[in-house]
Amino acid sequence: MPKFAVVERDYKNVYEKYISYGHLPRKNGLGAHGTHYDITDVHDELVRTNPSRTIDGAEHLSLERARDVANVILVLATVTNGELAWRSYKDMEEKVGLPLADLADGNRNVRVQFADLQAQPRRLLNSPMWSGLTNSGRAYAPFTYNRERMVPWRTLTGRQHLYLDHPLYLEFGEHVPTYKPGPPPAEFADLRFSEKVGPTLELNYLTPHGKWHIHSTYGENERMTTLGRGCDPLWMNETDAESLDIVDNDWVEVHNDNGVVVTRAVVSARIPRGICIQYHSPERTYSIPKSPLRGHKRAGGHNSMTRTRLKVNLMAGGYGQFTFHFNYWGPTGCNRDTQIYVRKLPELVW
């Protein structure tokens, strides 16, 4: 049974709370990835020197202006406040039983604030929250901290795991990282109501990361749309395309029970037969025509065709590294592939 907690809301003050920094971190300290550090003195200093707000007589740090938020984050984070990094290493020393604080010795008086970043980029400081060592200008490489300072990996055994002996993993046959076949097309159950309209092909639809963008970041600017195809195209196999009379750069309409995409086809020998790829993830703001199959409404993006499927073994918990932490461990969407129908777009309507 999951743990439930009662949360009481003070609706009158919701906005006021939203724009001020609460007192609990001062009391409990901060931390992540098993680290912990005390911030009492830094917090009190901030309240004195930075904009603050008074709620029921108590003074709180103000989060009203974006700039103040940035400064609160920068001053309370270990990678931009060397004193806090040092404390955090001290805390780790106790857990690990090895000297570590020397990693932050030279940084204790370093602080980066927003105005510093406005002037020029700065390097992040060494911090036990991350597994890379970056002292003396060294480039970040993961796990150098574990390997060189003998800090155990954050797993059940303290080592890297290739084998997972959790019963759920054993039962699902996912205990070793070996090839697992994809589910058979029908199991996706995303083509139960869709109909083939005109010459149509059923393909497996994949939405991996693109080569030069992280979602839409870095990709959707004039430089990169120019160095690409000017849209987020659908990559498909030459023979598959030929069977639908599609040539490179033709418009195609891709659909299933969940949604529709209208984009250009990139026809390539690089793609095996039976699959197609649309790199994620385009914004629905540029180069997206309307969809004839959906009553000439604006077509969607790559995620219009996939849906969330909770993967059961990712719900395993309370077992070493399988411990729930927001945005780190828990059921993910697994929404990266499905089955679709593709056809040549009969008419282009913007």
Binding site: K211, L227, R229, V247, D248, V267, A269, S287
Partner: peptide, 17 residues
């Protein structure tokens, strides 16, 4: 209608052509 760009055949795009 965007028909060409400076890097149109990136990663073997349009390999037939």
């Amino acid at each position: 209608d965007v028909e060409a760009g400076p890097n149109w055949d990136d990663d073997l795009g349009g390999s037939q052509i």
